[in-house]
Simulated assay, not measured.
Amino acid sequence: MTEPDKPQTNGDELRQAVVHGAVTIGFGIAILLVALASSGAIRTTLIVVAPVVVLIGALAALWRTYRNWRAGGRWQVWQGASWFLLAIFIVFLFGTGPTLVT
């Protein structure tokens, strides 16, 4: 049984941040791939949802940053994951924008 108050090591935080980023980007790409296979209103909806999913993942990483900072833990790892996901969000947003305009 694990102890709830046991501090996590640096490797655990790094692994969790990397997994969080990879899963978030994976969901975003999966939604875009489904959108490419769709047509009509579903395609437009999924194209809008893909960047939103990445943004929600970035906001979740920012929340983890704040929680780790308040607990006195290694918040820097989560801040790095947050900035990375925010940059990927911008890439997704500008990548899907032209499709929505046409």
Score class of each variant (00 low, 15 high):
47 I>E: 10
51 P>I: 10
25 I>M: 11
58 A>H: 06
89 F>N: 02
79 Q>W: 15
7 P>R: 06
45 T>I: 11
85 L>V: 09
20 H>I: 09
33 L>T: 10
7 P>Q: 05
22 A>R: 02
63 W>H: 14
74 R>V: 14
27 F>V: 12
89 F>W: 09
88 I>R: 02
11 G>P: 05
61 A>L: 04
33 L>W: 11
30 A>D: 03
61 A>K: 04
35 A>K: 01
85 L>H: 09
87 A>G: 11
70 R>H: 12
33 L>N: 10
90 I>H: 07
69 W>P: 01
98 P>V: 09
94 F>M: 12
18 V>P: 04
97 G>Y: 15
92 F>A: 02
21 G>W: 09
76 Q>Y: 13
22 A>G: 07
86 L>Y: 09
39 S>K: 01
21 G>F: 02
37 A>Y: 06
59 L>A: 14
33 L>F: 12
14 L>W: 12
54 V>W: 05
84 F>D: 00
51 P>Y: 02
47 I>Q: 08
62 L>I: 11
75 W>D: 01
72 G>E: 01
21 G>N: 04
57 G>P: 03
73 G>Q: 14
30 A>W: 08
67 R>S: 13
77 V>K: 07
25 I>L: 14
57 G>W: 01
88 I>W: 01
81 A>H: 02
29 I>E: 06
73 G>A: 15
58 A>T: 00
12 D>C: 12
61 A>Y: 01
82 S>L: 10
64 R>D: 00
24 T>E: 04
77 V>C: 00
15 R>S: 13
91 V>Y: 07
44 T>H: 03
94 F>C: 08
95 G>E: 11
17 A>H: 09
100 L>C: 05
88 I>L: 08
40 G>R: 02
40 G>D: 08
